[in-house]
C-alpha cells in the first residue's frame, strides 16, 4: 500500500496542474482581486479635468450609485475599451465618472476630443496618489460605488460588452433594487 503513496501524491499534483491550466484559460492570472470590495471607498478630492479649479469629493457624490472608470491617454488597453464605453455608458443607468490616471491633462483632453467622451464627468489624478487609496495598479480599471459610498464591484482590465452584460449590469440592477 505504501508503495502506492507516491502515485497518489502525483495524482493530486496532476489534478492541481490540470486545474491551473483550466483556471488560467478562464481567468486573467495577473488580476489581483481588490480587498476594498464591500468596503467604503476612500475619501478623495480631485480636480475636474476641464475645470481644474473645481474639485469633486467623495461626499459630493453620495446619494446615488455611480461608476468610476480609470483610464489614461497612454494606456493602450484603454483604447480597446473606449469604443465599448462610447456605446454603452449612457445605457448603464448610473453616471459614469472618468478617472484620468497619471496623465498629462492636455494629453487626456486631446485624447477625449479625438476618441469621444463617454463620461458624465472626468476627474484627474495627475500624481496617482489617490489611486493608491483605491488600490488601482493599472489602467483600465472600473469601480461601481453605491449610494452610501461603498465599493460594490471592481473590474480589472478593459470592460467588454460581455463583461458589462454578465457582470456589471446585474451588479447595477442589484443596487437599484436595494435602494428604491
Amino acid at each position: 500500500m505504501s508503495r502506492l503513496l507516491p502515485f497518489f501524491a502525483f495524482v493530486l499534483l496532476a489534478a492541481l496542474l490540470g486545474f491551473g491550466i483550466w483556471w488560467n484559460s478562464a481567468h486573467d492570472p495577473t488580476a489581483v482581486p481588490s480587498p476594498l470590495i464591500n468596503k467604503p471607498a476612500p475619501a478623495f478630492a480631485l480636480p475636474m479635468l476641464d475645470q481644474p479649479t473645481k474639485t469633486v469629493s467623495k461626499e459630493s457624490l453620495l446619494g446615488k450609485p455611480y461608476l468610476v472608470n480609470v483610464f489614461a491617454s497612454w494606456c493602450f488597453a484603454c483604447g480597446e475599451e473606449h469604443p465599448v464605453l462610447m456605446e454603452e455608458s449612457k445605457g448603464l443607468g448610473v453616471p459614469v465618472i472618468g478617472y484620468d490616471y497619471k496623465d498629462d491633462p492636455n494629453d487626456a483632453k486631446s485624447w477625449l476630443a479625438q476618441h469621444g467622451n463617454p463620461y458624465d464627468m472626468v476627474i484627474a489624478d495627475t500624481s496617482g496618489h489617490t489611486a493608491i487609496d483605491f488600490g488601482v495598479y493599472g489602467a483600465p480599471e472600473t469601480f461601481l460605488i453605491d449610494a452610501k459610498g461603498v465599493i460594490r464591484y471592481k473590474r480589472i482590465g478593459p470592460l467588454t460588452s460581455d463583461v458589462i452584460a454578465q457582470q456589471l449590469k446585474p451588479a447595477i440592477e442589484a443596487l437599484q433594487k436595494e435602494a428604491p
Partner: peptide, 9 residues
C-alpha cells in the same frame, strides 16, 4: 510519471 510510479508500486 504516473506510469512509472504505478510500475514502482
Amino acid at each position: 510519471v504516473g506510469g512509472s510510479l504505478l510500475l514502482y508500486a
